[in-house]
Simulated assay, not measured.
Amino acid sequence: MAEILVVRHGQASFGADNYDELSDLGRKQGQLLGETLRAMGWQPDRAITGSLARQKQTLEEMGFSVQAEEHSGWNEYDFHDLLHQRFGGQAPDDVITDRKTHFRALRDTLAEWQDGGIQSARETWAQFTARVEAARRHAAACDAERILVVSSGGVIARLVAATLEVPDRQMITLNLQVKNTSLTRFISSKRRFFLHEFNSVPQFHDAARAELMSYS
């Protein structure tokens, strides 16, 4: 049986022109996670990221020597595109730059997307779920015992929801709970794939490090 550890990337550059770059905090989060996993005696036999810079940068900061593969199925849904398309081509500034406004709008937007709305978006909900499943199958199809994946919150939430066979709306709730550099662990065999641990942050389990935890 294989252990697949799916990590959400570190904090990205929220509100910046280029969101797809780790912030200084995001880089520190990645370093702490790598240190914590090595202290626990956990070393990956295989590593995979999506094609997004923030995912690749997180793996780099973790400091493992294994050569990473790339599979675009682990990329986040394009939330900027979804928000802009929902608002007629350009979302209001506060929807992009204000955290509370952003996440309220994102929740409603994801629900509409799941229901088949926002047809002008670059990717449909069905296409998103299909590529996440393809990424899962690709990660599980090997003889490695410890597989490290660096992905994003929406993908992790979808994978958990699909594994537990819960309604699509539950994916939205899970998505908004996923912490930066949190660990979600799956166990995989030829016949079974199940959730073992969700949204764990052992790297932040002391008072000083807890201040470094973030959700976006």
Score class of each variant (00 low, 15 high):
152 S>E: 08
73 G>V: 04
148 L>A: 09
108 D>H: 14
154 G>V: 04
92 P>Q: 05
84 H>V: 02
79 F>V: 09
94 D>I: 06
143 D>M: 09
107 R>P: 04
145 E>I: 10
146 R>A: 10
134 A>P: 03
88 G>K: 11
81 D>H: 05
103 F>M: 11
84 H>Y: 11
103 F>R: 05
126 A>Y: 07
144 A>R: 02
64 F>Q: 00
117 G>L: 08
124 T>D: 01
108 D>V: 10
72 S>K: 09
121 A>R: 01
108 D>E: 13
152 S>D: 10
122 R>K: 09
103 F>N: 05
128 F>N: 02
81 D>M: 07
102 H>D: 07
133 E>R: 13
153 G>K: 02
89 G>P: 03
126 A>P: 01
146 R>S: 13
126 A>D: 06
66 V>Q: 12
71 H>M: 10
98 D>C: 05
124 T>N: 00
150 V>P: 00
87 F>G: 04
94 D>Q: 13
106 L>H: 06
93 D>R: 10
117 G>C: 11
113 W>T: 00
94 D>Y: 13
124 T>M: 02
137 R>G: 07
141 A>T: 13
119 Q>G: 13
70 E>G: 06
68 A>W: 08
131 R>E: 00
96 I>M: 14
86 R>W: 01
67 Q>F: 10
68 A>V: 06
134 A>Y: 10
78 D>C: 09
112 E>Y: 07
93 D>A: 15
99 R>P: 03
60 E>S: 12
72 S>I: 03
65 S>P: 12
115 D>C: 08
86 R>D: 03
124 T>P: 00
115 D>H: 12
66 V>H: 07
75 N>A: 09
61 E>T: 12
106 L>C: 08
82 L>D: 00
138 H>G: 03
128 F>P: 01
138 H>L: 15
149 V>I: 11
61 E>L: 15
117 G>H: 07
98 D>S: 05
124 T>W: 04
76 E>W: 02
83 L>N: 06
126 A>I: 03
64 F>K: 04
144 A>V: 04
141 A>S: 15
112 E>M: 08
114 Q>T: 03
67 Q>W: 11
111 A>S: 15
67 Q>I: 12
96 I>Q: 13
80 H>Q: 13
